[in-house]
C-alpha cells in the first residue's frame, strides 16, 4: 500500500477548479517530483493534500484513511509535513524557536529529533539563538526543512525548495533531501529545476492544467523525448 495516494483529485480556491483530476502515489522509500509549466497547479496540489484549499472530488489516502479537507493541525500529528515555497520561516523567532514550532503538535520529548536536525544541518546548530530573519536564503531553507522535520513526518512535502538559491546551495539542498529520504521519510516535492530533480526522483509527475500528463520514474521522464521537448525545454 502506498504511503499516500491521490486519486483523481479535483479542487480549487472557490472559483473554477484548478485541479482537474490529479493522480499521485508515493511509497515511503520514494522521492516524488512534480514538474510542469507555471500555473499548472503544482503548488495547488500540495496545498490540497495539506487541507489548505477545498477538495471537491477524488480521494487522498494517507495512512489508510481519506484525509481530503482535513486541516493541518490534524495532519501534522498523522505524519504529514509541508514546507511552503515562500515565507517559510518565522523571521522574528530564533532558529531554535522555529524548530520548536515544528514540534508544536508533539507532547513527547523532542530533543532527540532536534539533535538529529542539527546534525543534518550543522550550520543551524551554530545559529540556534539567532533570529531566522537574519539568515541567508539557503540557511532559511534549512530552517524551514528542519522545522518540518521536527514533527517526525513520514511524508515531507516541499514546494520548490531550490527556488532562489545559488547553484551550490541547490546541490546541497538536493543532497539533504536524498539523505532525509534514506532515513525513512517519503518525499513529495515540486521543482522548477526539473532536470536536476528528476535525475534522482524515483517517481516523476508532469502536471499541466491541473492534470497528469506523464508519470514515470525520474530518469524515464527525462529520457522521454516528448516530455523533454514540451516540459524540460528541449
Amino acid at each position: 500500500m502506498p504511503l499516500i495516494e491521490l486519486k483523481h483529485v479535483v479542487g480549487g480556491y472557490g472559483g473554477a477548479p484548478i485541479l482537474n483530476g490529479v493522480d499521485i502515489a508515493i511509497e515511503k522509500s520514494d522521492i516524488g517530483v512534480i514538474v510542469g509549466p507555471n500555473g499548472a497547479g503544482k503548488s495547488t496540489t500540495l496545498k490540497a493534500i495539506f487541507g489548505l484549499l477545498k477538495v471537491t472530488g477524488g480521494t487522498i489516502d494517507f495512512g489508510g484513511e481519506n484525509i481530503a479537507n482535513s486541516l493541518p493541525d490534524k495532519l501534522v500529528p498523522k505524519g504529514l509535513s509541508f514546507v511552503p515555497q515562500e515565507k517559510n520561516v518565522f523571521t522574528s523567532m530564533t532558529v531554535e524557536e522555529n524548530l520548536e514550532m515544528g514540534a508544536f503538535t508533539r507532547r513527547d520529548d523532542y530533543s532527540a529529533t532536534m539533535a538529529w536536525v542539527y546534525e543534518m544541518f550543522p550550520v543551524l546548530a551554530e545559529k540556534r539563538r539567532q533570529p531566522a530573519g537574519e539568515l541567508s536564503g539557503g540557511q532559511r531553507q534549512m530552517v524551514a526543512m528542519g522545522r518540518a522535520l521536527m514533527s517526525k513526518p513520514s511524508l515531507l512535502m516541499l514546494d520548490e525548495p531550490s527556488a532562489g538559491l545559488s547553484p551550490r546551495y541547490v546541490i546541497e539542498i538536493f543532497e539533504t533531501i536524498q539523505r532525509v529520504n534514506k532515513e525513512g521519510v517519503g518525499i513529495l516535492m515540486v521543482e522548477q529545476n526539473a532536470r536536476q530533480a528528476l535525475a534522482f526522483a524515483t517517481k516523476g509527475f508532469v502536471l499541466a492544467q491541473g492534470q497528469n500528463r506523464f508519470t514515470g520514474t525520474g530518469p524515464e521522464l527525462i529520457a522521454d523525448p516528448e516530455v523533454a521537448k514540451s516540459f524540460l525545454g528541449g
Binding site: 501534522v76 511552503p84 522574528s92 524557536e97 514550532m101 508544536f104
Partner: peptide
C-alpha cells in the same frame, strides 16, 4: 508569537 509573525506558517506547522 509564531502566529503573530506568520499566521499561515503557524497553521502549516500544525499550531492550533
Amino acid at each position: 508569537r509564531a502566529m503573530a509573525d506568520n499566521a499561515d506558517l503557524a497553521q502549516v506547522s500544525g499550531i492550533n
